[in-house]
Every structure is written in structure tokens, then in C-alpha cells.
Simulated scan of single mutants.
Amino acid sequence: MADGCRDCGTCTKSLLGRTGRKALYVVTFSWLIKPIFLRNCPQCGHVMRRHQRRGDGSFQD
């Protein structure tokens, strides 16, 4: 398989352009998917798994 073709717009983009596009996809994907699959704290908006918990599983205030 060839490394890239000379006629394809994606293959002829610069390294900076390809990296920027991939970074944009990752940021957009995480921004859209995070609220769906990860529970967030209603007060601070951080992910719930980062909050401190007591031994019985309740949250520390």
C-alpha cells in the first residue's frame, strides 16, 4: 500500500494540517461524547469519578 497519493487532498496536506485536523476531531468527539457517557457533578461540572468518596461510597463535602 502506498504511503499517500499525489492527487488526494488529504494525502497532500501538510503535517501541520493533518495534525490540526486530527486534534479538531479528538476535541470535538470528546466534547460531544463526554456529557453522554460520563456523569458530571451538577455543582462544579467535573467528572464524578474525580470526587472524593467516603468508605461507604457517599461523597465527601
Rank of each mutant, 00 (worst) to 15 (best):
K13W: 07
A23Y: 02
R39S: 07
R39C: 04
T10C: 04
R54C: 11
F37M: 08
G57H: 01
Q52H: 12
T19D: 02
L24A: 11
R53F: 02
R18S: 06
R39W: 02
S14H: 05
W31G: 14
R50F: 10
F37Y: 11
H51W: 00
F37K: 08
P42D: 13
L15W: 07
C11T: 06
T28A: 15
S30W: 09
T12M: 11
S14V: 04
R6S: 14
I33M: 15
K34F: 04
P42M: 03
H46R: 06
Q43M: 05
R18V: 04
R49D: 13
I36A: 08
T10F: 10
C44D: 03
Q43D: 10
M48S: 11
K13A: 15
F37P: 00
M48H: 01
V26D: 05
C5L: 07
R49W: 08
L24C: 07
S30Y: 09
K22N: 10
R50Y: 07
P35H: 02
L15N: 13
C44W: 04
T10M: 05
G20A: 14
G57D: 01
R39T: 03
L32C: 11
R49F: 08
D3Y: 11
G57K: 01
G55K: 11
G20L: 15
I33S: 15
D56N: 15
F29Y: 12
S14A: 09
S14Q: 04
L38F: 14
Q43R: 07
C8T: 05
A23L: 15
S58I: 00
Y25A: 10
I33G: 03
S58G: 02
R18M: 08
Q52T: 07
K13H: 05
S14W: 05
L38K: 09
V26E: 05
L38P: 01
R21W: 05
T28W: 06
T10R: 06
D61G: 14
Q60V: 15
T12A: 04
R53T: 06
G17M: 09
P42K: 11
T12V: 14
D3G: 15
D61P: 14
I36L: 14
G20F: 08
H51T: 02
C11V: 06
V47A: 13
L32F: 10
K13P: 00
Q60F: 03
A23M: 09
V47Q: 15
L32P: 00
G9I: 00
L15I: 12
K34E: 14
R6H: 08
D56M: 07
C11G: 03
F37T: 12
K22I: 08
F29H: 08
S14C: 09
T28Y: 05
L24D: 01
R50S: 15
W31H: 11
F37S: 06
S30E: 09
I33V: 15
C41K: 01
G9D: 06
F29W: 04
R21P: 00
H51D: 00
S30N: 11
D56C: 10
K34G: 05
F29L: 11
L16G: 12
T19H: 02
F37N: 04
S58Y: 01
A2N: 10
L15Y: 09
T19W: 02
T12F: 02
C44I: 02
L32A: 15
G17F: 03
N40H: 13
C5W: 12
F29C: 06
S14R: 03
N40M: 06
A23F: 07
T28R: 13
L15G: 12
R53Y: 01
F37E: 01
S14I: 04
